[in-house]
Amino acid sequence: MQTLKAPQSAKRATIDRGDVERLPAMRPGFCDHCQNALPKSAINHHSRFCSSACRQTWWKIAKLRGAKLYYHLMVWRGHRGRKGTPGAGRLGMISSMVDRFIQSDRE
């Protein structure tokens, strides 16, 4: 007789923040969150943020925005954006979301 095994719990996806932190700054010499000029010591260390508060806020926003984009991208990918499917028009929706993110960052 075969015994049933309990299903393995899904492992929670983790983000390797080190990989993201090593990406180049969007505007070298300026904070990726507040857009203020970085202190000289931060520039020499290739930092992306002027303070730990900016870095933490940036990560919170990135996590929220990334989850939304991930959801829409997965729906699009599952249906390849074909007309009459839930994936129809999703790439346009993703592009619009990113445009709104950029606009709200400028305000």
Score class of each variant (00 low, 15 high):
18 G>P: 00
87 G>K: 02
36 N>C: 10
59 W>I: 02
94 I>D: 04
89 G>T: 05
61 I>H: 02
50 C>V: 07
106 R>Y: 02
80 R>Y: 09
20 V>Q: 08
19 D>Y: 06
7 P>A: 12
37 A>D: 08
69 L>P: 01
40 K>N: 10
88 A>C: 09
101 F>W: 08
100 R>T: 14
13 A>S: 09
65 R>H: 06
4 L>E: 13
50 C>P: 03
70 Y>S: 06
52 S>A: 11
92 G>L: 15
10 A>K: 14
68 K>W: 10
46 H>N: 15
72 H>N: 12
14 T>I: 14
36 N>R: 15
90 R>Y: 04
64 L>Y: 06
31 C>T: 01
76 W>C: 01
54 C>A: 07
14 T>L: 13
94 I>C: 11
34 C>W: 03
29 G>K: 01
64 L>N: 08
57 T>N: 03
105 D>S: 05
107 E>H: 09
13 A>C: 07
55 R>E: 11
8 Q>R: 13
14 T>A: 07
86 P>C: 09
83 K>Q: 11
58 W>T: 00
16 D>T: 07
85 T>D: 02
41 S>G: 06
68 K>N: 06
11 K>Q: 12
47 S>E: 12
53 A>V: 10
85 T>K: 02
4 L>D: 11
35 Q>C: 10
23 L>D: 11
41 S>C: 05
89 G>V: 05
61 I>W: 00
18 G>T: 09
31 C>L: 00
23 L>T: 12
23 L>G: 04
3 T>Q: 12
84 G>L: 00
23 L>A: 12
21 E>P: 01
31 C>F: 01
55 R>G: 00
64 L>D: 10
13 A>M: 15
67 A>L: 12
23 L>S: 12
92 G>E: 15
2 Q>C: 06
20 V>L: 13
28 P>I: 05
13 A>K: 15
45 H>A: 07
59 W>F: 02
58 W>Y: 11
41 S>E: 15
20 V>S: 06
88 A>N: 09
9 S>M: 14
47 S>L: 09
70 Y>K: 10
51 S>H: 03
11 K>I: 15
48 R>T: 03
80 R>G: 05
77 R>A: 14
69 L>T: 06
68 K>Y: 08
42 A>Q: 14
42 A>L: 13
101 F>S: 01
86 P>L: 08
97 M>S: 02
11 K>Y: 09
88 A>P: 03
6 A>Q: 14
14 T>S: 07
51 S>A: 07
42 A>M: 14
6 A>G: 07
2 Q>K: 11
50 C>G: 10
62 A>I: 07
72 H>K: 12
